[in-house]
Amino acid sequence: MDSLYGIFLYAIYLLTMGGIYAVLVMGLNIQWGFTGLFNAGIAGFFAVGAYTSAIISTASSGRHLGGLSLPLWASLPGAMIASALIAWAVAWICIRLRSDYLAIATLGIAEILRLVLKNEDWATNGARGISRIPKPFEDLPEPWNQIAMLLLVLAILLVLYLLLERARRAPWGRVMTAIRENEAAARAAGKNVEGFRIEAFVLGGALMGLGGALMAHHVKFIDPNMAEPLSTTFIVWVMLIIGGSGNNKGALFGAFLVWTLWSTSEIVTTRLPAEWELKSAYLRFFLVGLALQIILQRYPAGILKEHRPIGK
């Protein structure tokens, strides 16, 4: 195979994965960037979305719930609804908690969700996961199948970006900023702070579910290991903080930048001398941490800073 063509295919994959992470980061941006809700349980909503779409779209296997074989237009909204419902239940219970307490609560809830999914064998096939999840356009010839998947992800991103930019500039977005900056003042102005916080949490949760669903379709497999905090929750946080919290462009940029660094760094580290080869995998964690430090030293508010919409 021609090596340029191979790099082209890898670039498509890189952008597709970056785009899927961007959906997750946009979800977190609504919660943390707009409203100041510290959600440390991204992996939980990701997993609910991934499993829901897997169950909706797979053929009957006898090992897990399923057999509906429904197409994408059912599985993606289904995943968003399931994650939104869970997010609503979580928000209803603990949205009044202050930021760091909310972080601890959501961290615990994500772990509960992961363990439930891991243990309810009848629905999820437990630790062995759900395989044979259909991938959109997989019957097209290469490379069109991969290009079509990328275009689908990018189209979803574009729609989300336009909607969220609109929301951010609208009065709704300004209330969110007010709640984040000074909750007492927002309350004094007569705003239903709890209601708005629940809205932000549910909307963000729905997007995380969508990200999970896209990941499940892309990888064609989901198991509880894929909802480990390191590769889902924390990397999404790093993406948002580096890109620029509160800024939708920053969220997009951060997702693509960090994912590209994360994935391509292996191409570099495998070229290290043999005695470094096994250590190099860990070196990547270190390099990403180092990049976070340097970028935050240089850009304390993220690379693309938040621009407040100015009221007329």
Binding site: I7, Y10, Y13, V219, E228, S231, S263, E266
Partner: peptide, 16 residues
């Protein structure tokens, strides 16, 4: 992890 395996698999197959 399936995500990690897909990521490294893409690089091995297409880049390397």
């Amino acid at each position: 992890d399936a995500k990690g395996a897909v990521d490294t698999g893409q690089k091995l197959v297409n880049v390397e």
